[in-house]
Design a protein around this nucleic acid. Structure first.
Length: 212
DNA sequence: ACATTAAGTGATT
DNA sequence: AATCACTTAATGT
């Protein structure tokens, strides 16, 4: 387990920091589809993702979930970092999209590490940066793209994080993630099929082309 | 064979 | 693009 951590982070973190991570953190295995953090939860640890994918969602006043971004291996959670500094509670929900392996680090170590390790500072800044970029992208698709493009992007993104063009998913689930209705998804999916961008079977979507 | 769940369709707003 | 009210198709028991 420790090997996995070293493999993935040896180029990012200096040796002393890696040692401390190993000493202070602990591995956690999570099954698929588990709600790992919910809104309002106290954040006690900050995660380093070793394998798998986690989706981060928010919720509007009516209780509709919508997707913010995915976390993959090598990522951490910008939200958690934010909360560590402010001692706040989680404003988002994290659900494992695949089985997940993470390294949990107590947040008490954060302050200290930020001062002592420049590779840690760089990592935190970098996480913020890439998250911000991703958020801007999703805002962009929300604001300027129509639903058809959103569905297509959603499918492509999902194929990316799951590492396979073949997706086990229903129209209803897509609708749920994009905060629209199943009927709309079905109709737009049909268009995507006609454009040869995807192919479908019951409970199954295959992404054929990754072009825009 | 029957019930359940996923997906397709036309009409309406 | 959302919703309603069905219909049709695929699957599980």
């Amino acid at each position: 387990m420790e090997k996995l951590l070293r493999e993935q982070y040896k180029y990012i973190f200096e040796e002393d920091l890696l040692k401390e991570i190993v000493k202070e953190g602990q591995v956690r295995k999570v099954d698929q589809g588990v709600c790992m953090i919910d809104m309002g939860d106290e954040l006690t640890h900050m995660p380093l993702i070793l394998s798998g994918a986690i989706k981060i969602v928010d919720e509007d006043k009516e209780g509709h979930e919508y997707l913010l971004y995915y976390l993959e291996k090598g990522d951490s959670c910008a939200m958690t970092m934010n909360c560590c500094i402010g001692g706040k509670k989680s404003e988002i929900r994290a659900i494992s999209e695949t089985p997940v392996l993470i390294y949990m680090i107590p947040i008490q170590r954060m302050d200290d590490w930020l001062v002592r390790f420049k590779s840690w500072r760089a990592f935190v800044l970098d996480s913020y940066n890439s998250r911000l970029k991703e958020m801007l992208e999703t805002i962009d698709t929300l604001a300027f793209h129509n639903m058809e493009q959103r569905i297509y992007k959603y499918l492509k993104d999902r194929a990316m994080v799951l590492n396979s063009p073949e997706l086990e998913i229903t129209h209803a689930k897509i609708a749920n993630d994009l905060n629209t209705s199943r009927v709309v998804v079905s109709r737009l999916i049909k268009k995507l099929i006609l454009d040869n961008k995807i192919a479908t079977n019951r409970n199954h979507v295959k992404v054929l082309a990754f072009s825009a």
